[in-house]
Design a protein around this nucleic acid. Structure first.
Length: 419
DNA sequence: AAAAATGATTCGGT
DNA sequence: ACCGAATCATTTTT
């Protein structure tokens, strides 16, 4: 623009280019003499053509303008006009509500640990804790570390991008502010206006920032769905865990709702989480109820197993009563456990205490042997679901005093007396 | 490869 | 907050 030919050197062309301002100045300055008027017009002309001049020439003219005797007066008038317009503009668009979407993104990034403080130590500690949680957790923690690696990668990209963004924003703001400050010597620019300009710049940049946050959130969500959605990486519980859970289930068949404490203990024994125990029992209950016949064998096995272990503990190997009454409606004759409280207690203590550590295997071995025996003893009918009422719901939990009450079916296995 | 089993999630109800 | 039910997505079995 500097090398443009300076066509606007003469009066007439300049006035034609800016008729409004020229008329305005003409009107105000009309009372003065012709010379004054000519002066103002000249000054205006110089101001208006200042950008069309080459740099050196512009600087020279700028300096000349600055030293002109009329400059302060004209400048103050311009400042006054400017002040009014700026104020009206500011009044028109004042409030700046915090973007809810941006806040949402911020919150999510903070929750995911992407933004906020770098928590390298924290995640390392978490990894160590997960690794120390148990043998089963090894696989899990490997996945988690993978997840964490990807997450930190995302976080790093996010931070570098954010840094770049801030740097660019600051740079640009500084440039603009310098420019405006420089121009404020020849152009009426109030500090407020500079401030407003900075605000505009920041808004523009923050829309870019939001895009960055948006895409980061997306990446995190994808990563999350791929690595943390347990349904995608489901692992069956190991055999021992399943057996422990099944034993609890079938030995509390009349009320298979483990308390919070019981859940915690089961979780510890199975080295799974409490939530997983809850899931398991939820699934088990619904599936058992849905198709009792399918679980009959399993029920018999675990019941027999419990009974056998109980009898073996009490040194009383009588199975003679088992095939006695396969007929009686509903509650088939099962182990006559309910009439011997001490024996039941021994069963409970066995389940509760010794199923941990190395003894499990030997005990399980014995159990599986005897279980095979009792299974071959055709005890198919011996474990009918007396815990389920006609509606399909579970029987109400028996009151503790009803242990010896005759209203209960003989085979009902109570969950009370244990923890 | 199809079917069954299984752990997890979602939704509505209480 | 918990449960039942339906459902999903994967694993295991057939």
């Amino acid at each position: 623009m500097d090398e443009q030919p300076r066509l606007m050197h003469s009066h007439g062309v300049g006035m034609a280019g800016h008729p409004g301002l020229a008329q305005h100045m003409d009107g105000t300055g009309g009372t003065d003499g012709e010379g004054r008027k000519q002066d103002i017009g000249d000054i205006l002309q110089q101001i208006m053509t200042i950008t069309d001049q080459s740099l050196d020439e512009a600087q020279a003219r700028k300096h000349a303008l600055n030293c002109h005797r009329m400059k302060p007066a004209l400048f103050s008038v311009l400042c006054e006009i400017k002040e009014k317009t700026v104020l009206s503009i500011r009044g028109a668009q004042e409030e700046e509500p915090p973007d809810p979407q941006l806040m949402r993104l911020d919150n999510m990034l903070l929750a995911e640990g992407v933004s906020g403080p770098e928590k390298g130590g924290g995640s390392a500690a978490a990894a160590a804790a997960a690794a120390a949680a148990g043998g089963v957790g090894a696989d899990n923690s490997a996945e988690h570390s993978d997840y964490r690696a990807k997450l930190s990668q995302i976080r790093q990209i996010y931070h570098t991008e954010l840094e770049k963004y801030e740097q660019a924003c600051n740079e640009f703001t500084t440039h603009v502010m310098n420019l405006l400050r420089e121009q404020s010597r020849t152009r009426p620019i109030s500090p407020k206006e500079i401030e407003r300009m900075v605000g505009i710049i920041h808004r523009k940049f923050s829309s870019i920032q939001m895009q960055l946050k948006q895409s980061t959130c997306e990446a995190v969500m994808i990563l999350r769905s791929r690595f943390l959605d347990a349904r995608r990486k489901r692992r069956n519980f190991n055999k021992q865990a399943t057996e422990i859970l099944n034993e609890y289930f079938y030995s509390h068949l009349s009320n298979p709702y483990p308390s919070e404490e019981a859940k915690e203990e089961l979780a510890k024994k199975c080295s799974i989480t409490v939530a997983q125990v809850s899931n398991w029992f939820g699934n088990k209950r619904i599936r058992y109820k849905k198709n009792i016949g399918k679980f009959q064998e399993e029920a018999n096995m675990y019941a027999a197993r419990t009974a056998v272990s109980a009898t073996s503990v009490s040194a009383h190997g009588s199975q003679a009563n088992s095939p006695s009454t396969p007929n009686s409606a509903g509650s088939a004759g099962s182990f006559n456990m309910s009439n011997s409280g001490d024996l039941f207690m021994s069963v409970q203590s066995l389940n509760g205490d010794s199923y941990q550590g190395a003894q499990v295997d030997t005990l399980r071995h014995v159990i599986s042997q005897t279980g095979g025996y009792s299974d071959s003893l055709a005890v198919n009918q011996m474990y009918s679901p007396q815990g389920i009422n006609a509606n399909g719901g579970w029987q109400d939990a028996p009151t503790p005093s009803s242990v010896t009450s005759p209203t209960e079916g003989p085979g009902s296995v109570h969950s009370d007396t244990s923890n």
